Computed example of a mutant assay.
Amino acid sequence: MRKPLVMGNWKLNGNNQMVKELIEGLKSELATVTDCDVAIAPPSMYLSQAELLIQGSKIALGAQNADVNIQGAFTGETSAAMLKDVGVHYVILGHSERRTYHKESNELIAKKFAVVKAAGMTPVLCIGETEAENEAGQTEAVCQQQLDAVLNALGSDAFNQAVIAYEPVWAIGTGKSATPAQAQAVHQFIRQHIAKHDAKVAEQVIIQYGGSVNADNAAELFTQPDIDGALVGGASLKADAFAVIVKAAEQAYKA
């Protein structure tokens, strides 16, 4: 039985006071949670602060990106080794905002995936289709292409101890969410596609849903058999709203 993971992607939000207050709120709200893994991904500027604040809690630290390079003359970048050094456990890769605004290709993301795994951290691979691709019936083809970039380069074993986040681009930050049935269908496709390469790997890989996950739709999403938690955007910036999502995932797991 896969234990769910709910991860908060804070994106480009935060300051010293907000980080302190939000983490204090999360520690209080989530003190009794045992059957759902929880992580937060603050901006890199606040990772060290967050690592100190989550001490003594079950909250894990995540990062929103990693550079493909290990070290050297790459101004403005942060290496996987640096993230590991400040206590990062999970690294989000291939988020649609990185793909869109920074023109990150499937091939580059696969290289980053390899670097993060080699550093001993857990990659969270974001995949998903745009609204136009969804309307054209290309959801599965797009997801397969994004998965295959990793599978072809690194093999199915790369998804051992890894996370996939299915995030339909049209649902991110829009208030629109895939229905539980729609999300489940894609999650099932993802798991079955990996199973073609290795059934055991497919069975254990965590597949999160992301895209306007909130306190109102979380519980029904988590009842689906192939949805193993969520990658949460806006709702992760409020301790009470994020806690409702975490507790819904825990309840579904117990049930």
Results as ranks from 00 to 15, higher is better:
L221T: 08
A81I: 09
A110T: 12
A239L: 08
G175I: 13
K111C: 06
A199W: 11
N65K: 03
G94C: 10
F113W: 07
I23P: 05
G120F: 06
K111P: 02
A80Y: 03
G234H: 11
A50Y: 05
I23F: 04
V6R: 07
L5M: 11
L61I: 12
Q184I: 13
Q224W: 07
F222P: 04
V6S: 05
G128H: 08
A60I: 00
E51M: 14
Q161M: 02
G120Y: 11
E131T: 02
F113V: 07
A195E: 14
T34I: 08
T130V: 12
Y209I: 00
K238S: 13
E24P: 01
C126E: 06
E135W: 00
V38F: 03
Y101S: 10
T139Q: 14
L53M: 13
A230D: 02
A183Y: 07
G62M: 12
T174Q: 09
V201A: 13
N69T: 12
G62Q: 12
Y209V: 00
L125K: 08
R191G: 08
Q49E: 15
V246K: 13
I70M: 03
Y209Q: 03
G233S: 13
V150G: 08
V33L: 04
Q144P: 00
A136M: 11
A202Y: 08
A158W: 07
E135D: 14
T32R: 08
G234S: 09
A81W: 01
G234D: 10
E51H: 13
I206H: 03
I172D: 00
I227D: 01
V232Y: 12
A218S: 15
V91L: 11
T100V: 13
Y46V: 06
I190Q: 01
T130C: 07
Y209W: 10
Q161W: 00
W10G: 05
H95N: 09
H95V: 11
L151G: 06
S212P: 03
A60D: 12
